[in-house]
Each structure stands twice: as structure tokens, then as C-alpha cells.
């Protein structure tokens, strides 16, 4: 059953998009990430213009993260204060990112920036996560006592002004690092169509050292706000949000996310991190590969010709 997308101006198979949404939603609920980094490459592969793919999936992420945040919120595992500060940064970052992306498209360099961002960010974070979790798993298998995580946080977290209490996260730190983290995630949201969970979760775990129980819920809350802002900006500035595409993705996505969130309880945390790390690494390498391979055709049509 094919459906014609009004903004993307292509005809796509509706059940395929529903399934894709469900799969990404499942992974999203399982790992507490937006899952956008997985979906953008697949949508582009299906023939949807990259700019429309990036903007529409941001809207899809709004739906799947709303559903997940509500689930986590009932369990009391969302730190709204922390999430709110990060979301504020996220909104600022999205504003900047949407303008940046618009400029890059006109310069014909959007592909390059997207490929480099995927390669560097996903590649390094995937590799780090994988290494860390494999070390933990191996230690556990050998029966070594679990290495006590150092509870000391970087000192600069305390040296900065504007300290705020975050009771749910068990923190009393400056508001500046979470704010900057949010700005960074907001820029990524606009350029890569991702919520930024893959970078927020490790940062919250390893830099802020938030209480583990609230990390995922808080990250999803910030993703929800950031992608909502990104969607409105992309629609308003670039007219690249395809509501039919995002609706198809989100219907599959919210269902998948619920099952994912339930399934996540069955796995060990370190094994999940290893799987996630591997997935992120592979997507990053795959996207970055285009930079090194000789293109089939030395020329390419740049989007935005009609604009």
C-alpha cells in the first residue's frame, strides 16, 4: 500500500514505514534514546530527501519520547529540573542549528557536515561505550568484584557559578554544564535529526554522574522538548516537516517504544550498553564511509534547487 507524501513528494510503502517506526521505537524505548540516528539513514535510503527525513523524524521523536517520558515519569525517574535546564539549552541550540543547516544546504555542504558529524560523534561515542561496557562484562564474567565507580566528579562542576540543587539526581552543581550539554544536543537535533540521547546519556552518566535511575527518563524529557522546538523551527523556516511521513513513523514508533521500555528490564545494564555501543559505532562508520569511497558519479544534485 503506497502513500504519496505531500512534502517529500515521493511515494512510499506505508506498512514499511510503520515497521521502521516500530523497530526504531523499540530500540528507543529499550535504550532510552531518541533513535533518530538510526532512522535518518534508513529514510534517506528509501528515497526521502535528507532535509525532509531529518525534520520529519524530529517530529516522530516527539511522539515516541512523550510516550516514554510518561512511562518513566510514573516511576518517578525523571528529574524535571535537570531536564528543564538542558531543554532550555536544547531550544537555543535548535534555533542556531536550524539556521546553520539552512546555510549549509545552500552551500552544498550539508551532506559533508552530516557525514562528518555521524562519523565523529557516533564513531567515538560508540567505541567508548563499547569499550567501557565490555570491560565491565569481562570483569563480571571473571568473577572479579565490580569495580567501584569513582564517585568523585570533575572538580570544575563545583567551581562554576549558578549552582542549583537537583534532589532527584542527587546533585548540587552549576547549571552551566547541563545547559551547554543541552545546546549541543539542540544543534545535533537540527543537523542530524536526532534527539541527542546517545550523547546526553553518556555525558550524564560519566561527567555529571547523575543517579543512574533518573538518567534515561531525564534524557528523554530533554529530547522531547528539544525535538518539539526543532520541529516547529524546521516547519517554519524550511518547510521540511512531512506530517504524513512523521505520523506513519510515530504510530509504529509509540507502540515499539512501549514494548522497548518493558523489555529493557530484562537485560543487564552493561550488556545493553555494549549492544547500544556496537549499534552506534556501526551506524557512524557506515555514514562516514561515504567520505572515503570514490563516488559512483563525480557529480551530484544538490537539494534546494527549487527553493
Amino acid at each position: 500500500m503506497d502513500v504519496y507524501l505531500p512534502i517529500a513528494e515521493v511515494s512510499v510503502n506505508a506498512p514499511l514505514l510503520l515497521a521502521l517506526g516500530a523497530l526504531v521505537g523499540f530500540i528507543s524505548g529499550l535504550f532510552g534514546i531518541g533513535g533518530g540516528f538510526l532512522m535518518a539513514p534508513v529514510l534517506v535510503f528509501l528515497g526521502i530527501p535528507p532535509a525532509v527525513a531529518v525534520a520529519s523524524q524530529a517530529n516522530h521523536v516527539v511522539a515516541s519520547s512523550t510516550s516514554s517520558v510518561l512511562t518513566y515519569s510514573k516511576a518517578g525517574s525523571v528529574d524535571y529540573r535537570m531536564g528543564g535546564i538542558m531543554a532550555l539549552g536544547g531550544a537555543v541550540g535548535a534555533l542556531f542549528g536550524v539556521e546553520l543547516f539552512r546555510l549549509l544546504r545552500l552551500l552544498g555542504q550539508a551532506d559533508l557536515v552530516v557525514a562528518v558529524s555521524y562519523l565523529l560523534l557516533l564513531g567515538s561515542i560508540g567505541a567508548l561505550t563499547l569499550k567501557e561496557s565490555l570491560t565491565t562484562i569481562l570483569a563480571r564474567r571473571r568473577g572479579e568484584p565490580a569495580r567501584r565507580e569513582p564517585t568523585r566528579r570533575p572538580l570544575w562542576l563545583y567551581g562554576l557559578p549558578f549552582r542549583v540543587r537537583f534532589p532527584r539526581s542527587g546533585l548540587y552543581i552549576s547549571a552551566i554544564p547541563p545547559l551547554l550539554l543541552g545546546v549541543f544536543a539542540g544543534i545535533l537535533s537540527a543537523i542530524m535529526g536526532v534527539g541527542g540521547g546517545f550523547i546526553l546519556v553518556p555525558a550524564m552518566v560519566y561527567i555529571l554522574r547523575m543517579r543512574a535511575a533518573v538518567v534515561v527518563g531525564t534524557s528523554l524529557f530533554q529530547i522531547l522538548i528539544t525535538t518539539a522546538v526543532t520541529t516547529v523551527l524546521q516547519a517554519g523556516r524550511n518547510q521540511t516537516v512531512d506530517i504524513v511521513l512523521s505520523t506513519l513513523l510515530m504510530v509504529g514508533g509509540v507502540l515499539g517504544a512501549q514494548y522497548g521500555a518493558k523489555a529493557s528490564a530484562r537485560f543487564r545494564a552493561d550488556e545493553m550498553r555494549a549492544a547500544l555501543g556496537l549499534l552506534i559505532l556501526l551506524v557512524g562508520l557506515q555514514m562516514g564511509l561515504s567520505l572515503f569511497l570514490r563516488p559512483d558519479d563525480p557529480f551530484a544534485l544538490a537539494p534546494g534547487g527549487a527553493g
Binding site: A63, S67, L70, L233, A235, I243, M250, V254, L255
Partner: peptide
Amino acid sequence: FAFFQPWLYGLVSVLLAGFTGWAAS
């Protein structure tokens, strides 16, 4: 709608997404 009232369109898209997520949960 998307091209002549883009900001409203964006807002509606987000509300629809939020509602879908809420309904699913």
C-alpha cells in the same frame, strides 16, 4: 498548510505527535 502557514503547521505537527505519544501511553 505547510507552505502558507508554516509556523502553525509546525505547531500542529508537534501537538499531534505529543497526543499520539500520550494516547499510546
